[in-house]
Nucleic acid binder design. Structure first.
Lengths: 195, 195
DNA sequence: ACAACATACGGAACACTGTTCCGGATGCCT
DNA sequence: AGGCATCCGGAACAGTGTTCCGTATGTTGT
């Protein structure tokens, strides 16, 4: 059979086989390393685990943020897509918001150091920052709008601020048994309610 | 006149004059450097600004936390002491708590990177962590107890968690105009109220 | 004032990590 | 197989924290 992708549209002639292989090896190695040592694991460790040189990492993922995004893209997408579903499903908008935020918290607290990286002002994390915001702020905004329209919550909070706040509350969760990020997020959401 | 400190009690024969001079120079230089470049400013910069070698920093302040604590000790003490005063002054316990937390937030958001350092799990910051907690948790606890006793707030929050949460919310404040840490802290406190 | 000792200083040296760069190897197309 | 574009590996460089020890300085006793 002829090649799937019809002609006339391929200025990008598909990468070399070894390049694709290495990219996959790096993604797998990075995913494992992130779990084992957090998203701040040294570049050399990832390279070693993937069996490639450090140059290869930088070629495929110019910044650490690119690598992190590549590793977690699926989960972030899933989270973003869950927003509208929750809103459409039964329950009040505030309940949907709470459930959605909870998904976000679940995601963050299981990713060692990710919340801190999100907050970092290091230039290498700009892309990470941007991706999360681009993808999640509109979803959060939609949920907030619905809850405000339903008269359930105060109108003086924006999606950006809320997400940053929740992200911040998740920093360090998982490395301190005495710190309950989820509880604090609940408190924050509760503070949003009109009374 | 005889020496001020009476005999019989001085196992510590007072440091050398140059040592005292350097310690002060270091404190001044560090304070200035923290303001200019945050608490993560390179050790060498502080040493240069103080006109000493890096070895001298480590001799006087073995960890960065020691230096940070030394620089901010007065302000932290002032914050701790303000707790009982606020409680004794007029107003409800919840109002006192809110005002006190606000002092804490004021302190943190004006110290570039301090909130993040507080949250860091780097061993070098253990002492910082410990000092803040030792000094402020009891005060916060007292305020929380009073507010709970007055029936103003939920009882399911502990001082440690609240302080960590507030500290976390302050991370990055001051380096992002779109992020309003104070507002989020207000929301959190509002979520604490019984309704 | 001077000597002798304890203390403190300076900065070179090392360790660790991120990042760049290029000679050489490898896959791909003809 | 030949030839070229692409990609790889890892040495090399840069920035930062930390240690260490020969040297300088202050202090004390005479």
């Amino acid at each position: 059979m002829a090649d799937i992708e019809s002609a006339a549209e391929r200025p990008v002639p598909r990468k070399r086989a070894d390049a694709r292989r290495n990219e996959k090896a790096l993604l797998d190695a990075a995913a494992a390393a992130f779990v084992a040592s957090g998203v701040d694991v040294p570049v050399r460790d990832i390279a070693a685990k993937a069996g490639v040189g450090v140059g290869t990492i930088y070629r495929h993922f110019p910044t650490r943020a690119d690598l992190i995004v590549a590793v977690y893209r699926h989960q972030i997408e899933a989270c973003a897509e869950a927003g509208p579903s929750l809103l459409a499903g039964g329950g009040t908008p505030h309940a949907a918001l709470a459930r959605w935020i909870n998904l976000f918290v679940d995601f963050l607290i299981t990713k060692h150091g990710l919340a801190a990286a999100l907050r970092s002002d290091d230039a290498a994390f700009q892309a990470l920052h941007a991706y999360f915001l681009d993808r999640l702020v509109p979803v959060c905004d939609q949920l907030l709008d619905a809850a405000v329209a339903a008269g359930e919550i105060r109108a003086d909070i924006d999606a950006y601020g809320l997400l940053r706040g929740v992200g911040n509350l998740c920093i360090g969760a998982g490395s301190d048994p005495r710190y309950d990020a989820r509880h604090l997020v609940e408190l924050l959401l509760s503070g949003l309610r009109l009374r």
